[in-house]
């Protein structure tokens, strides 16, 4: 992996990918996962996020959580750009299986097929999945 690292300002820059697999509510993984992503921005790493399986629901427009008494944290995904986290990859098959298209998502993403996503994962130094 050493050949994939760049040295800048005396620190190591690694490729971090956060893989989001769970729906935004129902379990806490999406919310706590997002907290890690936001913290990682402070470390000036090469950060990307992948959304697969029910994880694609995290990015769905028009989330309304009033009836379940939980905070709607989906606006945070829109704020990621401000943290220089702009590489958001979404699995095409997962969208298709759930009747979603790119137009249903609340941020700009790159939609990929599973093989492209797998290749992207293989490039990473650190993969953390939620």
């Amino acid at each position: 992996m050493t050949d994939e690292m760049d040295m800048e300002e005396g620190g190591v820059i690694k490729k971090f990918m956060f893989v989001n697999r769970k729906a935004p509510y129902g379990t806490i993984y999406a919310l706590e996962g997002l907290e890690v992503v936001l913290i990682s921005a402070a470390f000036e790493q090469d950060v990307s996020m992948a959304f697969i399986d029910d994880g694609v629901y995290e990015l769905a427009k028009g989330q309304d959580t009033k009836a379940i008494g939980q905070k709607n944290f989906s606006p945070t995904y829109r704020a990621l750009e401000g943290y220089d986290i702009e590489k958001l990859y979404v699995d095409q098959k997962s969208l298709d299986e759930r009747g979603l298209t790119e137009a249903d998502l609340l941020v700009d993403v790159q939609v990929m097929d599973s093989a492209e996503l797998a290749a992207m994962m293989a490039e990473q130094d650190v993969l953390i999945s939620f």
């Binding site: 190591v12 890690v36 913290i39 470390f43 790493q45 650190v126």
Partner: peptide
């Protein structure tokens, strides 16, 4: 949580 990210940076494997 910074301790987790730091472990990712410092380690050969997480």
């Amino acid at each position: 949580l910074g301790q987790l990210v730091e472990a990712g940076i410092q380690c050969d494997r997480l």
